[in-house]
Design a protein around this nucleic acid. Sequence first.
DNA 1: AACGATTAAATCGCGTACGATATAAATAGC
DNA 2: GCTATTTATATCGTACGCGATTTAATCGTT
Lengths: 154, 154
Amino acid sequence: MTQTPAFTPMDEPLDAFLCFSVYAAGLAFNRVYKPLLDPYGITYPQYLALVALSGKQGQTVSELGERLHLESNTLTPLIKRLEAAGLVTRTRDKQDERVVRLGLTQAGSSLAKTALGCVPAEVLKATGLNRAALAALNAELAALGKALRTTAAR
Amino acid sequence: MTQTPAFTPMDEPLDAFLCFSVYAAGLAFNRVYKPLLDPYGITYPQYLALVALSGKQGQTVSELGERLHLESNTLTPLIKRLEAAGLVTRTRDKQDERVVRLGLTQAGSSLAKTALGCVPAEVLKATGLNRAALAALNAELAALGKALRTTAAR
DNA sequence: AACGATTAAATCGCGTACGATATAAATAGC
DNA sequence: GCTATTTATATCGTACGCGATTTAATCGTT
């Protein structure tokens, strides 16, 4: 079990790759969230955006992108779908017309509140972890992401 | 720092979500891999498929899908791109014409060997982890993925 | 004031993911 | 032996994610 497996036929060469376990866990989270979010008519990335927006009103697209680690090429269409669904408002900043400020509508805010009231508990159950183990793993992964981003930026 | 954060304005509500740290780490891995794989002309998911195929010749699309946790709707186009690039062979099983058996070409096999010779070491560096810590985190994430998949299947 | 450089979003094209459906081959029941 | 069902793969439409480019507004310098 090494990160650089010997190049000989092996049953599951991907098992040794951390990137793959992250990739597979990401797919799996997506599949757990889907049935939980379908009733709200939003996708998993849209849910993450709503949660991020619920933290503070009037964030810019760039600020939201910093939180989600995404850029306007991904966010603009996603946000427009949330706007079309009546969950998010997009308004040009009067001081700087280049900037778009984002906010939750009443519907968006109440959807976020409702979803946050039950979805996370379901997801926690699905992980099979207790809160302490989850927090520990979360911290390790946050550190991993940070390390990877400093390298990727070079 | 709980999985169900109180619904009050907070700077980074996503920080408490394990799903988000997995999501963000997945994005970050993708960005670390891109410049490493660009010289080979393959994407990150294509790399994972090649590594999985390097484990055993003659796997079916379904078998590859079990390893990668993907289905034919995703894999068929991906595999066809690898075939068009001359890295993978697709042949209908003579015993059962429904089945497509996959193999690496000489070029695909040698690309996999070359890439596995240097890419994983670069990625390991980017994680900032030593092999033991990486293996431990990998095992935790593999278990997490497994738990999530058993729930998602219901 | 004017103009080149920078910045924030948006747009475009391509490659995943995935639900839903289609196609074709094998199997099961009768 | 024939039809109904099941199974393996493929196709299609939608939504990300991202490199590259575009558009429009602001800033910096003169």
